[in-house]
Design a protein around this nucleic acid. Sequence first.
DNA 1: CACCAGGCAAGTA
DNA 2: TACTTGCATGGT
Length: 221
Amino acid sequence: MREFLLGVYTRLHHHFGPMHWWPGETPFEVMVGAVLTQQVSWSNVEKAIENLSRHGGLSVAGILSLPHEELGLLIRPTRYYNQKARRLKDVCGAVREDAADDVELFLGQDPAALRRRLLGIRGIGEETADSILLYAAGRPVFVIDNYTHRILQRLGKARGHESYDDLQALFEFNLPREVLLYNEYHALLVALGHHVCLKSRPRCPHCPLAAVCGYCLQSDR
DNA sequence: CACCAGGCAAGTA
DNA sequence: TACTTGCATGGT
């Protein structure tokens, strides 16, 4: 399994090259993006972040001082904007409570404690928490998402009933515990999820990545 | 027009 | 535990 996972990574990296994730400027922006990108394409998140930056909304104090209505308007492109407005405020509230608005201090706490803290916030699930741990706090935590699960199924390494923890353990147990590797690997799996032929199924002969995935990913969700 | 995007929580049986 | 539903925009 160890060689298999490394082999998939090697082929993906050769095809796509470095992904340069996370596409955010500061750790705080990464945290905001992690919440906003839930079930939304990144292009929509970019619009929201641009709106936030033009209205002083890219800081803990900024978001906390924006009225809910106005914050919702700024992040409207990211869908579910009412829920997400509250989620952003709750995350910022945690940073204020734990670290007096100091994002670096907040992210610098013990990774296990930070993960528990984040999971305690409504709207922050495992993937969002781990994205923040890996891409904002720089901790070696493998991020699992829907694509990861579907791709593993196509590759015959999962059946569909596995839990988040099962899949995370599969990667973390079989790969060296390196932030850069985890960073690239998750980004590449997302890129594969986006690029693999989404039309014919279940097998797609035109897929340029057939050597990696072998199948089209469309037939289940 | 249909379909989908880097989830999550609350409700039901 | 496992399955449903609400949330509710913009690109192709």
